[in-house]
Amino acid sequence: MTVLEFSQQNGYTIISCAETAVDREISGVYICDLLSMAMVGVKDGNLWITVHTNINIIAVASLTNASCIVIPEDIPVESQTVKKAEEKGIILVQSPHTSYEISVRYYVQSGGDPS
């Protein structure tokens, strides 16, 4: 499933690099708010869910090859973070749902592949 498909199916808002979401494939989910733990845990293609909205999440997503960052519970994202995401080609997605609900939706909608 691509970032665009997942976002559209669930009514999530893509707030950076939307034009690249159509062919960005998601492979699995990682949830963590400790950046150096995410550095280890985010595998290539993972959808990474974090409540942090500061600029540093962009470097983490970029260096770990995350497919996108999803911000849960409609937490507002700082404008300098959006700007950096555009610069680095990182897709930021905003969701009204909790981290749990986002990952369950991905699991069900992607056909239940837990990888």
């Binding site: 950046l35 733990m37 500061n54 540093n56």
Partner: peptide, 15 residues
């Protein structure tokens, strides 16, 4: 508050 400070950076380098 920004998400740093897990105390894992140096061991990440080592790994």
């Amino acid at each position: 508050e920004m998400g740093f400070g897990a105390g894992m950076g140096l061991s990440n380098i080592k790994k």
